[in-house]
Every structure is written in C-alpha cells, then in structure tokens.
C-alpha cells in the first residue's frame, strides 16, 4: 500500500485542497437536492407592458381575483 510521505503531502497540498473543495461542493449540492426547495419561487417577473396591452384590448381579463391581501403576511 502506498504511503504518503510528508514531503509529498507538502508538494501536493494544492491538489488536496482542490479535492476537498470539490467534495464539499458535491456534498452541498446533493444536500440541497435532498432538502429540496420549498414550493415555488414566490413571484415572477413578466412582460408587464404586453400584459397591460392585452388586458386593455380585452384579450386578457381585468377580473379581480379573490383570496389576497395587500402587504406581506
């Protein structure tokens, strides 16, 4: 079995750091995947000008929705 001599570790430390960082990044990625993200993204940016134009022309509706309140929870 090969033995890592002190002088070899000294020479290869940048490589070892790189490997450790890569393992941490992979672990973090997998951990995030396991936990998942909670639900949606909250809100979405849309083409508001196009939407307003369609609402004004009647192609889309201006009907007020239910189940909302102004301000944060």
């Amino acid at each position: 079995m090969p033995v890592l001599r002190p002088q070899r570790i000294h020479r290869d430390w940048p490589l070892l750091v790189l490997i450790v960082l890569q393992l941490a990044a992979i672990g973090g990625y997998l951990g995030a995947g396991l936990n998942g993200r909670e639900g949606g993204t909250g809100w979405r940016r849309i083409d508001t000008a196009e939407l307003r134009q369609r609402v004004e022309s009647g192609r889309l509706s201006d009907h007020e929705a239910l189940w909302y309140h102004v301000g944060r929870d």
């Binding site: 849309i46 309140h69 102004v70 944060r72």
Partner: peptide, 19 residues
C-alpha cells in the same frame, strides 16, 4: 400583494405575477 389561494403564498410586487 400576498396571494392566499395556494400554499405558495406568493408575495407579489406591483407589475409582477404569482408563481
């Protein structure tokens, strides 16, 4: 605006859409 229809409870700024 906070939409309360679905469990996302999106907080939507003016000009934005929910999820």
């Amino acid at each position: 605006i906070t939409c309360e229809l679905c469990p996302h409870h999106c907080v939507i700024p003016d000009g934005g859409a929910g999820d």
